[in-house]
Design a protein around this nucleic acid. Structure first.
Lengths: 126, 126
DNA sequence: CGGAATCCAATACGATACTG
DNA sequence: CAGTATCGTATTGGATTCCG
């Protein structure tokens, strides 16, 4: 295992070279690219909540446009977080579902959620 | 405690109302706003590594410009992650240091780091 | 229904120069 | 040294319309 439970990115960076430091930043930026942006999380949560059809997802997320939804769903599919299934019915219908892999994001979302909660209190005052 | 060790943002969203779901998304976006972007992490790591002076930080981060560094340092100061100290020497010098509060980001950065590492392997293949 | 096409606004980021 | 000013580019998100 490359990282023990007690190690962390910053302590690594304090102790090692600049190029190793880059090796820490890169995975973090990879992860951020997948979940940051205005719509990724709302979409993940909408699909997770049982909204499977394109219009269904669209209606469940206030102020999103079809263009943005279309693009973000493609991104999420590329990252194997969302599965797109086309059914040959009349008319054809498309279903979006989360992959099992999407569950691996839970630890990340939890960490962000917890930190964000206390940070809001800290910055805005109690 | 509002969140137990076994709960997480997505399971909450599956089980509760839309407005409660928003309450989960907001803190996550708060957290993301603080650390996302191209330069936040490199700057945090540079300061954490002992680079305290403006030019020092600037030189330690390839391709960053003074304009961007200036703006990002202000943001980080606003979020109480970085402390700016002006010394009345001749000429005046300015020192940037991480606050103790910045250490609370470790859990977030760790989660992102771990997930990012395995995700890169998953997407690019071994 | 499930999008794609087009056009537009806002923001992030970059290059270069300059100041106290 | 520690920034600011100005300008330009690039990416992102939004509004609207259209299509099979």
């Amino acid at each position: 295992m490359e990282l023990t439970a007690t190690s962390n990115a910053r302590s690594i960076c304090r102790e090692t070279s600049h190029t190793d430091c880059q090796k820490v930043i890169m995975p973090v930026r990879d992860a951020l690219d997948v979940i940051s942006g205005k719509w990724k999380l709302p979409i993940i949560i909408a699909v997770s909540s049982g909204h499977k059809r394109f219009r269904d997802i669209e209606r469940s997320i206030p102020r999103i446009t079809s263009k943005v939804l279309s693009k973000e769903l493609k991104d999420l599919e590329t990252h194997k977080l969302v599965k797109r299934t086309v059914y040959d019915s009349q008319p054809v219908s498309v279903e979006y579902t989360l992959t099992p892999y999407a569950d691996t994001l839970n630890s990340v979302i939890d960490a962000l959620h917890r930190w964000g909660l206390q940070h809001r209190k800290k910055i805005l005052g109690r």
